[in-house]
């Protein structure tokens, strides 16, 4: 049984290439980082992480309960009532494209490039 064949190598590099392209596209997004909190598929809140006056805490009444914190430059799940806590372990989201998901509660936290604010420009 051969471990690597020619087709395997082609497959591996093709996948890495695709991953690189998707990553490049998502990091090209312009504008200041905006944290989007999505609950059950609907946008619950969008927070601009550049001109955020002070730390904001969102306590979401999902099942189980999840708490999201937005600060200057980052956003993160600070606690979740689920057993595996994958969303909390994801840590602080700082770059565009960073995403944390709490599947049991159906909450998605993602950072995207937002519109430039009319007030600051």
């Amino acid at each position: 049984m051969k471990i690597f064949k020619k087709s395997d190598i082609i497959l591996i590099f093709a996948v890495l290439f695709v991953a690189g392209i998707i990553f490049a596209i998502s990091s090209l997004e312009k504008g200041p980082p905006v944290a989007h909190i999505i609950v059950g598929g609907e946008e619950y809140k969008a927070v601009n992480l550049v001109d955020i006056p002070e730390k904001q805490v969102f306590i979401l009444e999902t099942h189980p309960e999840t708490i999201i914190v937005c600060e200057k430059g980052c956003a993160y799940f600070s606690s979740a009532g689920c057993p595996d806590k994958i969303c909390v372990k994801t840590g602080r989201l700082t770059k565009k494209g960073d995403t944390a998901v709490c599947l049991p509660a159906g909450v998605v936290l993602t950072i995207e490039g937002g519109e430039y604010d009319a007030v600051t420009y």
């Binding site: 471990i3 690597f4 395997d8 591996i12 996948v15 890495l16 695709v18 991953a19 690189g20 998707i22 990553f23 998502s26 989007h36 999505i38 059950g40 598929g41 494209g97 960073d98 995403t99 998901v101 599947l103 159906g106 909450v107 998605v108 993602t110």
Partner: peptide, 29 residues
């Protein structure tokens, strides 16, 4: 996950998942 969370935004995970699949796949192979 996209179905459960009812949003397509989690495609941001895709690059990391692809790279990680190649890594673990090669090791397991």
């Amino acid at each position: 996950a996209a179905f459960i969370s009812a949003t397509l935004k989690i495609v941001y995970y895709l690059p990391a998942l692809l790279v990680f699949a190649v890594l673990t796949g090669v090791v397991n192979g």
